[in-house]
C-alpha cells in the first residue's frame, strides 16, 4: 500500500513538471543571454533584463498594458452591472415577455461566434468604431453567461430580504445594488474573474477592429510582434514579451487561485 501511494505521488509530481516547467523555462530564457537560449535547460550562466529592455524599446508595451487593463475593467464592470440588472429582472420582477427574453438569452449562448464575426465587423465599420475603444468594449458589455449566473444566484436569495427592503422604501435599483450585491459576492467574483480573464486573453477581435498601435491590447500587440519581423528572430525578446503578457494574470492567479479554479469549474465555460 505504501509503495502504491509513492507511485501516485511520483506520477503527480511528473504532472507538475509537465505543466509548469515550460513556464519556468520561458522565464529563464527571457533572462538568459541570446546565445544560451537554444541549449538552456535550467538556469542561464547570468541573468539580464536585456530582452525586456528591447521589448520596451521596440513596442509600446506599457501603453498596451494600459489599454488591456482599461478594456478588461470596462467590460467587466459592464457585465457585472448590466448582467445583474437583467438577472434581477428575470428572477425577481414580473413582466410580460420575461420568459421569452430568458429563452433568447439561452439561445445566444449556443450561437457560434463564427456566424456573427463578419457582420459585427461591418457594424463597427459603419459605426465608425474601428480603431476606438468602443469597438473593444461595447459589443462585450452584455453577456448571456453573466446574466444566467446572476439569475440563478438571485433566485436563491430569500424573498424576505427584498420585501423588507421594499417596506423600507427602497426602489429596485437600491434593492439590487445596496441589498443584493453585498449578498452576491460569490456570483460577482465568479462572473468578474471569468469576464476579466476572457477579455484580457481575447485576441481575434482586437486583431480585426484595431489597426493603430497605440490602441492595441497586450495579447494583440505581442501576437503581431511574434509573427511580424520586429522581433528580428531573436528568441529572448519574444519570450520576454510573452512573459510580460502572462505576468498580470499569473500574479492574480497566485493570490486568488481558488476563486479562479472554482469559478471556471462551476461554469465549465471558457472562451
Amino acid at each position: 500500500m505504501g509503495s502504491r501511494k509513492w507511485m501516485i505521488y511520483l506520477v503527480l509530481i511528473a504532472g507538475v513538471i509537465v505543466f509548469t516547467y515550460p513556464f519556468f523555462w520561458m522565464v529563464m530564457a527571457s533572462l538568459a543571454p541570446e546565445k544560451e537560449i537554444e541549449s538552456l535547460v535550467l538556469l542561464p550562466s547570468r541573468m539580464s533584463l536585456h530582452s525586456y529592455q528591447q521589448v520596451v524599446e521596440k513596442i509600446p508595451i506599457f501603453r498596451a498594458l494600459l489599454n488591456s487593463l482599461l478594456v478588461s475593467a470596462a467590460v467587466t464592470a459592464g457585465v457585472l452591472v448590466f448582467g445583474s440588472m437583467v438577472g434581477y429582472a428575470l428572477s425577481r420582477l414580473r413582466f410580460r415577455g420575461r420568459n421569452l427574453i430568458f429563452y433568447v438569452i439561452l439561445f445566444t449562448m449556443t450561437l457560434p461566434f463564427q456566424i456573427t464575426l463578419i457582420p459585427q465587423y461591418i457594424l463597427m465599420v459603419k459605426f465608425g468604431w474601428v480603431d476606438t475603444y468602443l469597438a473593444l468594449i461595447v459589443p462585450y458589455i452584455m453577456n448571456a453567461f453573466g446574466i444566467i449566473m446572476f439569475r440563478q444566484f438571485f433566485m436563491s436569495i430569500p424573498q424576505d430580504l427584498i420585501d423588507a427592503a421594499r417596506i423600507d422604501g427602497c426602489g429596485d435599483l437600491q434593492i439590487l445594488f445596496r441589498i443584493l450585491w453585498p449578498n452576491a459576492v460569490p456570483a460577482l467574483v465568479t462572473v468578474g474573474i471569468i469576464t476579466f480573464m476572457n477579455t484580457w486573453n481575447e485576441v481575434l477581435w482586437p486583431l480585426i477592429v484595431i489597426r493603430v498601435e497605440e490602441l492595441m491590447t497586450m495579447p494583440q500587440l505581442i501576437a503581431l510582434f511574434a509573427v511580424g519581423g520586429r522581433a528580428e528572430a531573436q528568441l529572448g525578446v519574444k519570450l520576454a514579451a510573452a512573459t510580460m503578457l502572462a505576468l498580470p494574470i499569473v500574479l492574480a492567479y497566485l493570490f486568488f487561485q481558488r476563486y479562479f479554479i472554482e469559478s471556471m469549474a462551476t461554469t465549465g465555460l471558457k472562451e
Binding site: F23, W200, N201, L245, I249, F260
Partner: peptide, 8 residues
C-alpha cells in the same frame, strides 16, 4: 496554470 494563461 496553463488554463488561465493567454493562448498567445
Amino acid at each position: 496554470l496553463p488554463v488561465i494563461v493567454s493562448g498567445v
